[in-house]
Structures are given as structure tokens and as C-alpha cells.
Design a protein around this nucleic acid. Structure first.
Length: 141
DNA sequence: GATATGATTGTTTCC
DNA sequence: GGAAACAATCATATC
């Protein structure tokens, strides 16, 4: 929608620094090393893609490029109405909420432990794992 | 063998 | 406020 291509444009130019192991690029500050840092939650589009990829694979078992799936997903996403996107948006919002809790706990740990980690703390809360799982049940239906 | 790349959009994050 | 990174995915290519 509208100018969402701002980054795509730049990225396409050839600056795609994959998150995987690729050095994560210039902003690597976080990529430096923070295995404890919660990963960003998938946006509505990514939530939709999770299911779309499976379906696409079934429909195109011979497909090899994830790029193709991305293109197809993006095209379909644009064709979808808000009503159709609604469930994905809601899920994404839930993920976001959970991420907020996770990131807060992560920040708290940094602030409190400052590199020194209170394992005892984490063991008791482990925060999200529990929360997340129970919370996920909500959207089950 | 290990890692980068290909594309998509949305959200987050940093300056 | 804006620009850039990063989130998932996986066969393929390159080193």
C-alpha cells in the first residue's frame, strides 16, 4: 500500500543483508550478539505468509525459489480485503503484545543484571514461554 | 560445509 | 520523522 516500497526499493538495489548469519549489516549492534533478545514478531503479512507458503507449496510442489512465494504472497496480500486480513492482523497484534512483554523482560534483565544475569530470576519467570503458550490458546478458535 | 541470495510487506528500531 | 534493518522461508549458488 501506498509507499511501502521505500525500503524494498533500497533493499532490492542489492543491500539485502539477511538476518540469518549474514552479518546483519550495519545496524549489527543487535546482531552483535543477543541470543536472549526476543525476535521481532511477524507482521500481519508474515502471519499470512506462514499459511500461504504451505498452501503455495502444495499448489506448486516444484517451486524452488522462496522469492516466488514472496511475490505471490505479496500479490495476494494486496488483493485481500481488510476483512480478510483482519484475522492475520489480530494475530500479529497478539504477537506484538507478547513481544512487548518479552522485550520488557529482556530490558529488565539487562538493566537489572547488566550483563550479570540473575538466572534465578529467569528460571522462575522464563516469562514468556509460559505466557506465550497459554496466550496462544486464545486465538485457537 | 557453511553461508549468502532470491522476494514479499509490515513493524520495529535507531539516529 | 525518516530511513534502514529485520522478521520467515528454503533450494540453490558460491566460496
Amino acid at each position: 500500500m501506498k509507499g511501502g516500497q521505500t525500503k524494498s526499493d533500497s533493499i532490492q538495489t542489492g543491500n539485502k543483508l539477511k538476518s540469518k548469519g549474514a552479518g546483519a549489516g550495519k545496524r549489527a549492534k543487535k546482531a552483535a550478539k543477543d541470543p536472549n533478545k526476543p525476535k521481532r514478531p511477524p507482521s500481519a503479512f508474515f502471519v499470512f505468509m506462514e499459511g500461504f507458503r504451505k498452501q503455495y507449496k502444495e499448489d506448486n510442489p516444484d517451486n524452488k525459489s522462496v522469492a516466488v512465494v514472496g511475490k505471490a504472497g505479496g500479490a495476494k496480500w494486496k488483493n485481500m480485503t481488510d476483512a480478510e486480513k483482519a484475522p492475520y492482523v489480530q494475530k500479529a497484534e497478539k504477537r506484538k503484545t507478547e513481544y512487548n512483554k518479552n522485550i520488557q523482560a529482556y530490558n529488565t534483565k539487562l538493566a537489572g543484571g547488566g550483563g550479570n544475569n540473575d538466572e534465578s530470576d529467569k528460571s522462575k519467570s522464563e516469562i514468556n514461554d509460559d505466557d506465550v503458550q497459554s496466550g496462544e490458546n486464545e486465538d485457537e478458535d
